[in-house]
Design a protein around this nucleic acid. Sequence first.
DNA 1: AAAAGCCCCTGCTTGC
DNA 2: TGCAAGCAGGGGCTTT
Length: 280
Amino acid sequence: MPELPEVETIRRGLDGWVIGRRITDVEVRHPRAVRRHHAGPADFRARLLGTTITGTRRRGKFLWLPLDSGDALLCHLGMSGQLLIEPPDKPDGPHLRIRLVFDQAEHQLRFVDQRTFGEMLVSPDGAELPGEIAHIAPDIYDPAFDLAEFSRRLRARRGEVKRALLDQSLISGVGNIYADEALWRARLHGNHPSQELSDAVARELVEHIREVFDAALNAGGTSFDALYVNTNGESGYFDRSLAVYGRAEEPCRRCGTPVERIKFTNRSSFHCPSCQIVPG
DNA sequence: AAAAGCCCCTGCTTGC
DNA sequence: TGCAAGCAGGGGCTTT
């Protein structure tokens, strides 16, 4: 899915457009898109009608729009979700899941999602922090992110460091791409046991995450194809800067050794076998 | 309690 | 050509 930089790019795109707008119609085109709104699509619609969006917020890969009702419209893009600001006369694509219509607006907001892993729900009293995502750890840009606490919890874990980075309850916003990129920058192998990391290395790892996120944000996010776009439907360009992800057999940008691809929990991991060594 | 596996989807690519 | 398997950047739930 979009990882933190892509979701943040989308949040910024929404921020300049949705704030202050009043919702006048809601159309749920696919029930799966609101599957975690347990009261169902009709209730989802009813709770949104007539409310005004007061802001745009994000934690990790979750995005929410606080409403003047005190509730929040919570959204996760899953693997292929898009939030598009489009004119009403633009034809609906086959993957349109939810449409939001606003008072006196020349555009509407469309939630488009090919693979339907994404979702929206209305979180009661969720404006400040939706209860549905209270278990997600703060991401590195959140003032609540506690570096010492992250280091302590990371090093208390059994298991491998890459799996830890992907655990959203430990640190949020990192997915498969940026985990590989940050580990490469840190010269750590993803299979490195978390428990063997020093406090200094754990803190450095966060700095590498920050650097790769900052770089991706400056490029407008990563996109391999037309699935990953901002609210204008445009792709980011950070894929041109990826050091290891998707670069199997290509030379490591540091030492020239061919990048290796390995299986990791039914996914792919990429690393440099020279720069990133597992101890022991 | 924490960690690992399974599952949910669609569409594109690859290999027989 | 046709079909099956593999693959894709997710998280929640169940099991161990």
